[in-house]
Simulated scan of single mutants.
Amino acid sequence: MLGQLALGSAIMGATTVVAALSLWGLEAFLARIHRWVVRPPQGPRLVAAVTAVMIWTLVVMTVAVWIWALALWGLGVFVTLEAAVYFALVAFTTLGFGDILLPQEWRLLGGLAAANGLLVFALLAAMLVETLRQTRLRQRGDRP
């Protein structure tokens, strides 16, 4: 049990580092496009900025799911990589179909993957909201 918790915590730590680094990268990206975003026409530029952040978010989510999938596959929990990716995605999104289950000796990892998914989703949702807020403030000429 403690081994699973330690392993799951390490995987959660890896996805946290990926999410934090992506947030840092996003900040740099937004600073770089600042002058472009504030120029008219602002509507299409706002759409472009939010779309870029959505794609950024999807990439981060995909990387986090792959980290879980590769860990589960590397541990031999699943025979195929496809099953590991499918389980990781279903657990990470807390969808929980239940059609593929972890063996009993690894079942704590499913809960940790779900908790990790909730935390990463929350961080990325906050990132999207903050991007939209900062972009609108910049477009109106306010200082974020």
Rank of each mutant, 00 (worst) to 15 (best):
L2A: 10
I55W: 05
L81I: 11
Y86C: 00
L102H: 03
V90L: 01
A48M: 11
P144H: 06
Y86I: 03
A64V: 13
V47L: 10
A48P: 10
H34E: 14
D142G: 01
G98I: 05
E82S: 11
G141T: 11
Q42I: 13
R138M: 06
V17D: 04
G111I: 13
G25F: 03
V79S: 07
W66P: 00
V59P: 02
A122F: 05
I33S: 00
L108G: 07
A20K: 10
T135F: 03
M61F: 13
L128D: 11
A19I: 07
M61E: 13
F97P: 02
F29M: 02
P41F: 05
D99K: 11
T62I: 13
F87L: 06
P41L: 04
P144W: 10
R35G: 08
L123A: 15
V53F: 05
G96P: 00
A91T: 09
T51G: 14
G141D: 08
F92Q: 02
W106L: 02
S9A: 14
A52G: 12
V79I: 00
I33L: 01
A113M: 13
L132C: 09
F97G: 10
A88S: 15
G110N: 06
I33V: 15
A125W: 14
L101Y: 02
P103F: 02
A48G: 05
E105R: 10
A52L: 15
V65N: 03
W36E: 06
A125N: 05
G110S: 08
A71S: 14
A48E: 10
M54H: 09
W56H: 15
V63L: 06
L101F: 01
G8N: 08
G96V: 13
L23D: 13
I33C: 02
G3F: 11
Y86V: 07
P144D: 01
G13Q: 05
